[in-house]
């Protein structure tokens, strides 16, 4: 039962991303062609709302269910990993039109060929794990 809340969050997330058309390949294409405000509106208002929430939780010392202060996890140090890794992900995001969340969600909408993408993404993750020590971060 302790997983039920996560199942519900996942369902909610999947519904929002379909209804907002954020899972649409075409919306991602349009975003990277600067031909529509839609995706920028979604990401922008998500960040603005998130920022507001995190600022309030910091000032009011809001606690999570295990009694710790609510805060976003801190990212690792580095520059190359973020710019190069980010660029590699961006190339894939624009080709497939889906980032990891939408890959799963689209599978649920009936795009079964996404299975190939997900398996390839697992393989990509695995390759990173093998090469991690040799890459600049």
């Amino acid at each position: 039962m302790k997983y039920l809340k996560f199942l519900l969050v996942g369902i909610f997330f999947g519904i929002i991303l379909v209804k907002s058309e954020a899972v649409s390949w075409f919306r991602i294409y349009e975003m990277f062609r600067f031909q529509s405000f839609h995706m920028y509106g979604i990401i922008g208002t998500a960040i603005a709302t998130g920022l507001l929430f995190l600022q309030i939780s910091k000032r009011k010392h809001l606690k999570n269910i295990i009694g710790e202060q609510i805060d976003a996890p801190e990212k690792e140090e580095g520059f190359i990993r973020f710019i190069v890794g980010g660029t590699i992900f961006g190339l894939g995001w624009a080709l497939i039109g889906a980032c990891p969340g939408p890959m799963y969600i689209l599978l649920g909408t009936g795009v079964y060929s996404m299975t190939i993408v997900i398996i390839a993404a697992l393989l990509g993750t695995f390759i990173y794990g093998l090469l991690k020590g040799k890459l600049p971060h």
Binding site: F89, C99, P100, I116, V117, A120, A121, Y128
Partner: peptide
Amino acid sequence: LLIIGGLLVGFGTRYASGCTS
């Protein structure tokens, strides 16, 4: 194309330690 796209997403997100979310 689907395989290349998936590889790029999987490799890139782990290298950058995160995606859109």
